[in-house]
Amino acid sequence: MNWFGFGFNGFGQIQRQEKSTDGESTRNAKLTNPVPIEVWRNSQSAQSCQQNSDVTQIRASWSRIAVLHSNSPRRLCLAGFGVGTAAQRCCIESGSCQDADIGEGYMALSFLDRVEIWSSGKNKPEWSMEVKTTDNTGPCVAFPLVPGGYIASKFPFYRPLSPHLLAVSLALGTQHAVLLSATGDVYTWGSGSHGQLGHGNLSQEEEPRALEALMGLQMGSVAAGGWHSVCISAGGDLYVWGWNESGQLGLPSLARRGGQQTIQCAGSANTCTDQENGDDVFISIQAFPALMDVTESCEVSKVSCGSRHTAAVTRTGVLFTWGWGEYGQLGQGNVSSSDEPKQVPFFKDQGLRVVDVVCGPWNTFVSTVQEDTIS
């Protein structure tokens, strides 16, 4: 597989910043088309991190990314703010590291037998926790879940969860959480100020609460953006809810279509009508899950959320993006935003099939294979 990135590159986290003849950095902060990721420099100390094809996972914060390689020895490479030299970029021989989560001031690493929290600029973990499993094969849940709870980005890092939830996957937004259970049910908690909990209101939930609107529908995956949430059903249908200010739900957005006209909003600021045109209805906040058609004929297999944009992969390997596009994170060759899903043409034009997508707050990362490798 090969990985591409596009969107915010202000700290060289996707494509390194070249030096001009006068020694100044020529920074390209907006990458509007996909480019191969570059988390290394051409030097002896980075040789083991020079293969894009052995990248297994990418995790992104606003200013940095963490890239896990499968080569031996396994390495976790960093790129972005505060990461300058090749030695720093490939500084961690990760051994049995299975996954990572990265923020602006910390990085969480998940191993077969433990979890570690590293602060920026430190050469050793500041916090660790043993993970006990019965067969020594590591957790059977997806990070940031760990047996009995999950790892948060702020102290206390370990947060317990009831075993009755049967959690198998967890997505963390800016102020909310979306959990998928083994039974296919979805639970949310945290801030609901933008409808991101999906319970039909803007209230906060202190404890995980089942999403009643999706009860009876088996879900297969969940994702969380800054203030919006999405999930994919077992059948490949996409459901969205939360804030739609930039069209990140793929629903009509006033900012994308109506400009600054005077509008009248009903209820809890969910539906707004353009008073000048009357018939145009815009969605500011979608407080209940809504079924969204990414494409008429294809089911969705993968989805990821940025701060205010969303990206989805169909089961035929096509990438669609929508929402805020100020830094090119939609991959459409421009900095326009969109409240409608649009196919990213680059990959089809290159004969590539998309197999995975991971969104950072202001950028997007895509894993691909050649079409002719698909049997």
Rank of each mutant, 00 (worst) to 15 (best):
N2F: 07
G5D: 10
G7H: 05
Q13S: 06
I14A: 09
R16S: 07
G23S: 03
E24S: 12
T32V: 14
E38F: 00
V39R: 02
R41N: 14
N42S: 11
S45D: 15
S48I: 05
S53R: 11
S53C: 03
R59Y: 02
L68S: 03
P73V: 06
R74S: 14
R75M: 08
C77H: 00
G80T: 01
G80M: 04
Q88D: 13
Q88H: 10
I92E: 01
G95W: 06
D99M: 03
D101T: 03
A108H: 01
A108I: 08
S110K: 11
F111E: 03
F111I: 02
L112T: 14
V115G: 04
S119R: 10
K122E: 12
K124R: 15
E126S: 13
V131R: 01
T134W: 04
V141E: 13
F143P: 05
P144T: 03
V146P: 07
G148M: 04
A152G: 03
S153M: 06
R159C: 11
P160Y: 05
L165W: 04
L166K: 12
V168H: 02
S169V: 01
S169Y: 00
L172W: 00
H176R: 08
A177N: 10
S181I: 12
A182T: 02
T183R: 13
T183S: 14
G184V: 09
V186D: 09
G190V: 07
G198D: 13
G200T: 05
L202F: 02
Q204N: 12
A210G: 04
L214W: 07
M215H: 15
L217Y: 07
L217P: 00
G220D: 15
G220H: 10
V222C: 05
A224N: 08
G225Y: 01
G226F: 12
S229I: 06
A234N: 13
A234W: 05
D237P: 00
G242A: 05
W243L: 12
L254E: 13
A255N: 15
Q260V: 10
A269T: 04
C272P: 02
V281P: 00
I283L: 13
I283Q: 09
A290H: 14
A290K: 14
L291G: 05
D293Y: 02
S297D: 13
C305P: 02
S307Y: 12
R308F: 01
H309E: 04
H309K: 11
T310N: 04
T316P: 00
T316E: 14
V318F: 02
V318C: 09
L319E: 08
G323P: 04
Q329P: 06
S337C: 11
V344I: 08
F346T: 08
F347I: 10
K348Q: 15
Q350L: 08
L352R: 12
G360W: 01
W362K: 07
V366A: 13
V369E: 15
I374K: 08
